[in-house]
Design a protein around this nucleic acid. Structure first.
Lengths: 347, 347
DNA sequence: ATTTGGCACTCCGCGGGATAGAGTGCCAGC
DNA sequence: GCTGGCACTCTATCCCGCGGAGTGCCAAAT
């Protein structure tokens, strides 16, 4: 018969939708009688049973044991979100709240915190937001201060008056005057430019024959290089971890523990989020699709946020696989847009 | 009879000790037979029962229900730690590990992280360490950078090359030259002094008639004041929250949730830690003694850490009331000493 | 006067039916 | 192709009885 999922009968799709809908609502396996009522179609439980049997054969649902209702599988959720999900438009009430929350005058860092809080607050799950990439921020100025011996404190001021410090170890001791010269030189050369632009220009310059550069210039270049070097202090912020404690499927203490441990060792998490940043638009990991054990019973809905077309970071929500995707997706989407807009105003 | 706790019979004290010992080990109410064996005294269960009855009358133990063994009460623990606790000396193995971990060349901030990790790692509970107070750090130098309009970026470098940024809003626009003058003036005046000393000197100067100060000096003073103003970025670091999930008495998801929520809203926690900073030496909060509901089934063992006699912060361990105080106390104590020593070397 | 053994009593925890409820699968009839 | 009916299965729950652990008290022993 039709084990090509694409020509799954209209009716079967409707039932799957209804089943997931119901299961998401109350977490119990759903049986034929319930579904018959729920689906709106005027069918008897017996008929529903037949259809469910088909759905089970396709791997979209399964029953925990004989004589329990059916539960969606990961593939079931996948098919659901891919082809038969209709997102619910966000009610204007919440939207306004969000806009308000994110339009207050805040520093970029605070905005990220707010966004994370919003996500966790509205969805009652856990919100994550990666810190914005600095790569495309504007180079405003740099200053060097001599600390002691060969240690130099570099201060980099970027577009939105964000300040970064770094302590450099130089090869020889530099006098305050030399440092002043170096920073003047760099500021003149690069002020107002894009950080990546600065970086490439820098590398380019340094590869040029250095004959027509005086030693001061070389020093300046070197130090600037060190400052910009590992500028990817990629990290992220999350809020509402404890929200996850409310869900039955995570009430197994051991599972929760693994999850939280994973949050603490941020490495894997970052790696996962990193993957999301490359796809534009909403991305959804269901259950173990992420490939990370820690998220076994969890799903993640993410979206990149952008300013002027440039992707600055990712944000999203982590919750049990059984989540209301139709509700969560627009929330994540809206948050991404609003955060982008808020960051844009700052520039 | 003797309901004055101070003349609790030798034997009764011994039994209380044994009881707590046993209860801490396996978490089960302990009955007369067990205790008779445990206590070492050669007594029959019946005798033990009589003594336990006394202890119950004094409020040191209680039974969860008729015909269960006895469990120490908060007051029981209190009496235990106050008068009949003998701390176990720390084995040299662990001590060396700790010393190693804290003697690596690390920035103060990293040291704090390490200390917190150590506490949680060794005790298998949750470690907390407040960030060191900066009040008694040395003023090394300050620099001002003009950002835009009336915004000035102040950079304060303290003793151990710690750097702090602050953005000031000034009353009028200052030229780079003016700012340079101001920082020169301040650096000359205050370099190498204690931050609090600087602060008081500052306030004193500003109250003086300003007639013999030129406008540059006034400006400098004002800006310095703003920089030093709210220098108490009190915050703390904790590690190993998930360790707490292992304990039965906290396996009630709801209780755990409250606890973690409390950790996230750091306010109460800070307040509590703040109280500890004023007492010198180990301090122990048992159960609800802290007055904070969140710690209902938990205890906290803290100790301030010092450099050169100055208390810089507090560190400690949070765990279930049923913890091995005799083991935890020396660990907290040692960590405090080692952290103090490590910070001292940095100066 | 304290300690001890004995005894009756209480309460928890556990395994074992028994039962009700929910749900399935299949089949025969519409 | 849909439906009602029927037998079957599996779970969850309550109840029961029982053994174990422990207490409290009393009377006897030291």
């Amino acid at each position: 018969m039709s084990n090509d999922s694409s020509d799954l009968s209209e009716r079967a799709q409707l039932m799957l939708r209804a089943l997931i809908d119901r299961y998401v609502r109350d977490g119990q396996p759903v049986g034929s009688r319930t579904l018959a009522r729920e689906a709106g179609l005027d069918l008897s439980p017996a008929t529903v049973r037949n259809v469910m049997s088909d759905l089970e054969a396709l791997g979209f649902v399964c029953s925990p044991h004989t004589s329990a209702g059916r539960v969606p599988t990961v593939q079931g959720y996948r098919f659901f979100v891919d082809t038969l999900l209709k997102v619910q438009p966000l009610d204007t009430q919440s939207l306004n709240n969000m806009r308000l929350e994110l339009s207050l005058d805040q520093s970029p860092k605070d905005l990220v915190e707010s966004a994370s809080g919003l996500l966790s607050g509205i969805t009652q799950m856990t919100g994550v937001v990666t810190l914005p990439r600095q790569e495309h921020a504007l180079f405003k100025r740099v200053e060097f201060l001599r600390l002691s011996g060969k240690q130099v404190l570099a201060i980099l001021v970027t577009g939105e008056d964000e300040v970064q410090n770094r302590i450099l170890s130089t090869e020889k001791e530099h006098s305050p005057a030399e440092l002043q010269q170096a920073s003047n030189y760099l500021n003149e050369l690069f002020a107002g430019k894009d950080l990546t632009e600065v970086r490439t220009a820098l590398l380019h310059e340094m590869q040029e024959t250095r004959t027509h550069m005086n030693s001061m210039m070389v020093t300046a270049m070197h130090m600037a290089d060190q400052v910009l070097e590992k500028n990817q202090n990629e990290d992220f912020v999350m809020a509402g971890q404890t929200n996850l404690m409310g869900f039955q499927e995570l009430c197994d203490i051991d599972k929760l523990r693994k999850l939280f441990d994973a949050f603490n060792t941020k490495r894997d998490m970052l790696h996962l989020l990193d993957q999301c940043i490359h796809s534009d638009g909403i991305q959804i990991f269901i259950g173990d699709e992420s490939g990370y054990r820690m998220l076994d019973e969890c799903s993640m809905v993410t979206a990149p946020y952008t300013v002027g077309g440039q992707i600055l970071g990712v944000l999203g929500v982590i919750g049990p696989t059984r989540m209301a995707y139709d509700r969560v997706i627009p929330i994540v989407d809206a948050t991404a847009r609003l955060l982008g807009a808020a960051l844009n105003q700052k520039e």
